[in-house]
Structures are given as structure tokens and as C-alpha cells.
Computed example of a mutant assay.
Amino acid sequence: MKVLTLNEEGLRMAARRLADDIVGSCPDGFDLMVGIRRGGAFVADGLREALPDGYCRCRRDVELQRPSTKRKGDRLFAILRKMPIWMLDTLRCVEARMLQLSCRGRRVEEMGLSPDTAPLPSLDEKPRILVVDDAIDSGVTIRVVCDALQERYGTDAVIKTAVVTVTTDAPLLDADFYCCHDHTLVRFPWSMDYKR
């Protein structure tokens, strides 16, 4: 497992790489791009800039966080800012392993997650939807969002997924488009342990 820190320019480069892969595989574009807040919304912003004009007819974000993410607070943020980068990398690797162990064998329904799909628009039959997140770890978050979209728009909806990194070998739902799929943990500019 390795840790990669992406600054704003690195994020733009990752978005351009994703955009090239997406356009190459799906030349007809998408009716809707859905960013999963918080990190997925930032990646979706980068994709919007990198994709051709009109490639995604509309863009919305959905809110969904793991309960563990909500518990992280200001005190932890202050502590992380003072740690050396090698220690932050070690903590990221430990957290990733703990997450893998805590999700192993659990069903999606047991996670107690449901996205807020209220801001999503009505779409024509057989819509093409691109779901964007920053990373897939267990795959629970993106699976829950994709299941909710399939339920809302019907089984004829074509749903593709794009992320910067997939950190595990066998997530519940894998990405169709990604920059890294080799256990790379990415520290993004919005991460609590990000340092300039």
C-alpha cells in the first residue's frame, strides 16, 4: 500500500486522464453526472472542466458519508496538521486496513447508508449516468449511490463509475474508470491530513 498526495494541479491532471478514458469509451456522453459529496463533488468539478462542452447534459451532487467520517472533528484536524508526513502515511495505511476488516462480510444493507437523491432531475427513458467519487475503498458508498440511482431511473439506466483511485482488490462495486487500481491511497487537497 502506498500513499500519493495530489495537489490542485495533480487533481486537474487526474481529471484530464479520467476524461480521456471516459470519452474514449463512451463517445455519446451522459445525461447526468452525479458527484458523491464531498470528495466526489470536487473530482466531478475537475471532470466537468476536462470533458468536452455538452458531454454531460447536467450535473448534481448527492450527500452520503460513512458514520466514521462524520465523527472526525476539529481536534483531530489540529493534531494531523502537526504530524510529519511519514506518520500521516502510516496512519492512512492503518485506517485503510481497519476499514477493510470492518467491512469484510457485511452486507450493504447493514451499513445504514442512504443517499439524498432529492436534488436529482427527471430524465428520459434509458438515461446514461456517470457517478463520480474520489476513491473506492470498500465500495459500499458508490454501490449504495448506484443502487439508489438504478431504483430511481429504472433498470434500463446505464450507470458508469469514475474515481481517482480504487484501494482494494475486490470492492463491492468496482470503478469503470480510474487513475489508480493498485492499493494507492490518495491524499487530496480536501483531506484532513493534506499539507501544502
Rank of each mutant, 00 (worst) to 15 (best):
R187M: 04
L149F: 10
Q65A: 14
T5Y: 14
R128T: 12
C93D: 03
V166C: 08
R16S: 05
C56F: 06
V132P: 05
C146I: 10
I142Q: 00
G29D: 09
V140L: 11
R59F: 03
H183M: 07
D20C: 11
V164I: 15
I79Y: 07
L11C: 02
R38G: 13
R107K: 14
S191Q: 01
A41N: 09
D193P: 00
R187K: 05
K82A: 14
S138G: 07
C58H: 07
V163K: 15
E49H: 12
S114M: 12
T141H: 07
C58F: 06
G24M: 08
I79P: 06
F42T: 15
M111P: 03
A44K: 03
R37G: 11
P52K: 03
R97A: 11
V140Y: 09
A162K: 06
V23G: 14
E125A: 15
G112S: 07
R92M: 15
S122L: 11
C26V: 13
P115N: 11
D74M: 14
V131T: 09
E49C: 08
R196I: 04
E49Y: 07
L123C: 11
S122A: 11
M1I: 14
I136W: 05
A14I: 01
T69V: 06
G10C: 04
L91V: 12
S102A: 15
S191K: 04
T161M: 13
G40T: 12
A170N: 03
G35Y: 09
S68D: 01
R16I: 00
L76A: 04
S25E: 11
R48S: 12
L173V: 01
C179K: 02
L11A: 02
V164A: 06
A170R: 03
M98F: 14
L173C: 00
D124W: 02
V131S: 09
L149V: 07
R17W: 06
P119F: 13
C58I: 07
G46H: 07
G73S: 13
E49Q: 11
Y194H: 02
Y194S: 02
I129Y: 07
G112M: 05
P52I: 08
S102I: 04
K195M: 01
W86Y: 13
D134N: 11
M111N: 09
V132K: 08
A135N: 06
K126L: 01
M83E: 04
L99C: 06
V34I: 13
D45I: 05
G105A: 01
C146W: 05
A44S: 13
L113Y: 09
L149Q: 09
G139K: 01
R71S: 08
N7I: 00
R38V: 15
I85R: 15
Q100I: 02
A41T: 12
P52H: 08
D156I: 02
L123Y: 13
P67S: 02
G29K: 07
P171S: 10
I136G: 04
Y178S: 10
L6M: 05
V140P: 10
E151L: 10
L130G: 02
K70G: 00
D169Y: 04
